[in-house]
């Protein structure tokens, strides 16, 4: 089963280092968002209560087995069952329930404060289409990456194009499903500049495991600058090589599925490639973003992410593939 097939590469450790000690980049325990913070506190408190209960049960169990006759007789009463099995849980659970509901209500209040959703995320098999609405109401289409301004509540409109997906960026907030026929809204607020990772949490068939994304939190000015750049048309090919790459792109019919704003490529089946070179990853956080990965993806995408919609393009003559890959990589 493991014969000479190319191994599926993930984001390599190089990028991991760039992310700054990558452990915890997708961990609910290293929260950087408001909601994730609240939940982590709830987790620690509820977890401690549960641990204490477990210890209590164990102590009683050991005493029941090993205690002196007097202790055992004291344990072996209906009263113990009523107090340990009924009164104690009612008290403890009442507290936990109220606390959890208050956390829930606090989150709801936050989302009311955030206002209309300014980002739409569409789940697809197996990538994310991300549409930002800038301050002038223009739509800016991007993919597989969510950029957020620091410290602002942002509402995300979550929908799906095919099956059920679930949007989960553990450092920001809990997950919320994307369900056909429904629109869900998730409010997030990131309080740390940096990069974290998220992943589809609802099994969506085939390459469910390879449907991840990065969340990049930027200071407000940088975010606005980035959004303006993202809204602009693609950089025209500068060098001769890039021009040839662009020609190969057009000739090979890539525009049937992909858009590069500012060119005649207007396809909407695959991700928008206008600024693909500036993203953190390729193929929904499956490959690092470099020319080599572009080339591998174009020719070998069915091995890297089986069942994805893109056909394999293996017909390029010597050099053609490289110019195409370099051109795509230049779309910063």
């Amino acid at each position: 089963m493991s014969h000479s097939r190319p191994t599926t590469p993930m984001v390599p450790s190089l990028l991991g280092l760039a992310l700054g000690g990558c452990e915890g980049v997708q961990s609910a325990l290293s929260a950087s968002g408001d909601e994730a913070h609240d939940i982590r506190l709830l987790l620690w408190i509820a977890g401690a209560v549960c641990a204490a209960t477990l210890v209590l049960v164990l102590v009683f169990g050991i005493l029941a087995f090993n205690g002196s006759a007097r202790v055992r007789a004291w344990i072996a009463r209906d009263q113990l069952i009523v107090s340990g099995g009924l009164v104690l849980p009612v008290v403890v659970l009442s507290g936990l329930l109220a606390y959890a509901l208050l956390v829930l209500q606090a989150g709801a209040a936050r989302s009311a404060f955030a206002g209309e959703p300014s980002v739409t995320i569409i789940g697809k098999r197996w990538w994310w289409k991300v549409i930002y609405r800038d301050s002038e109401g223009r739509e800016v289409v991007s993919a597989n990456e969510l950029r957020l301004p620091l410290g602002q509540p942002i509402s995300l409109r979550l929908i799906t194009d095919d099956v059920i997906h679930s949007f989960w960026a553990p450092k920001l907030a809990g997950k919320l499903d994307m369900i056909p026929g429904r629109t869900n809204v998730l409010t997030v607020q990131s309080n740390e500049v940096g990069v974290s990772r998220g992943q589809c949490a609802e099994y969506c068939g085939g390459a469910h495991a390879l449907m991840a994304f990065y969340v990049v939190t930027l200071p407000e000015e940088e975010y606005q600058a980035w959004l303006a750049r993202e809204a602009s048309k693609a950089l025209p090919p500068a060098t001769e090589a890039e021009k040839r790459g662009h020609a190969v792109f057009v000739e090979s019919g890539c525009g049937a599925c992909h858009t590069i704003r500012g060119t005649e490529a207007r396809g909407t089946i695959g991700p928008d490639l206008t600024h693909v070179g500036s993203r953190m990853s390729l193929a929904a956080a499956t490959l690092p973003n470099d020319a080599n990965s572009f080339a591998r993806w174009i020719t070998d995408n069915q091995h890297i992410k089986p069942e994805n919609l893109m056909p394999p393009f293996r017909h390029f003559k010597a050099g053609e593939l490289d110019t195409l890959a370099n051109y795509l990589d230049s779309l910063k």
Binding site: E35, C50, L54, W168, E202
Partner: peptide, 27 residues
């Protein structure tokens, strides 16, 4: 059984707390 099930029941309480489940669900 007593040991394992008690742990399972207690983590069940965690999962039943709605906000916690937002993080724990499907993980």
């Amino acid at each position: 059984f007593l040991f394992i099930f008690t742990i399972g029941g207690l983590t069940g309480v965690l999962v039943a707390l709605v906000p916690l489940d937002f993080q724990l669900h499907d993980s």
